[in-house]
C-alpha cells in the first residue's frame, strides 16, 4: 500500500470518528432530551425562566445545538484537511 493510500485511509477513519461523535450529540439533544427523556427533564426548570427543560430542548435548545454542531464540524474538518494534506 502506498503512502497516499494509507494516509487517505487514516483521514477517512478520523473523519468517521468525528462525524459519529457529532451525530451522537445530534441524536442526544433531539431524540434524547427533546423526546425520550422529555418528561423527567420537564421536572427541571431553566433557572430564571419559565422554560421546562425538556420542552425547551424540543422547541429551542436542540436547534441551537444543531447550529453549533455544524460549525464545529466545519472548523474541525478544515484543520483535519490541512493535517492530512488533502485540503483544496
Amino acid at each position: 500500500m502506498s503512502d497516499d493510500d494509507s494516509r487517505a485511509k487514516r483521514y477517512w477513519m478520523a473523519n468517521l470518528r468525528l462525524t459519529l461523535f457529532l451525530l451522537t450529540i445530534w441524536a442526544l439533544v433531539s431524540f434524547g432530551c427533546g423526546v425520550l427523556f422529555v418528561e423527567p427533564l420537564n421536572r427541571v426548570r431553566i433557572p430564571g425562566t419559565g422554560f421546562k427543560l425538556g420542552f425547551w430542548f424540543a422547541q429551542q435548545g436542540s436547534i441551537y445545538t444543531f447550529v453549533v454542531l455544524v460549525f464545529v464540524y466545519v472548523a474541525a474538518m478544515k484543520r483535519m484537511d490541512r493535517r492530512f494534506g488533502v485540503e483544496e
Binding site: L23, S30, A58, Q59, I63, F66, L69, Y73, V74
Partner: peptide, 19 residues
Amino acid sequence: YDGSVYLMGWTGGYVLLAL
C-alpha cells in the same frame, strides 16, 4: 409540544446534510 416535531425535524436534517 407536539408541534416540536416540525421544529426539530426541519432543522435537524441540515446536520445530516452537512455531515
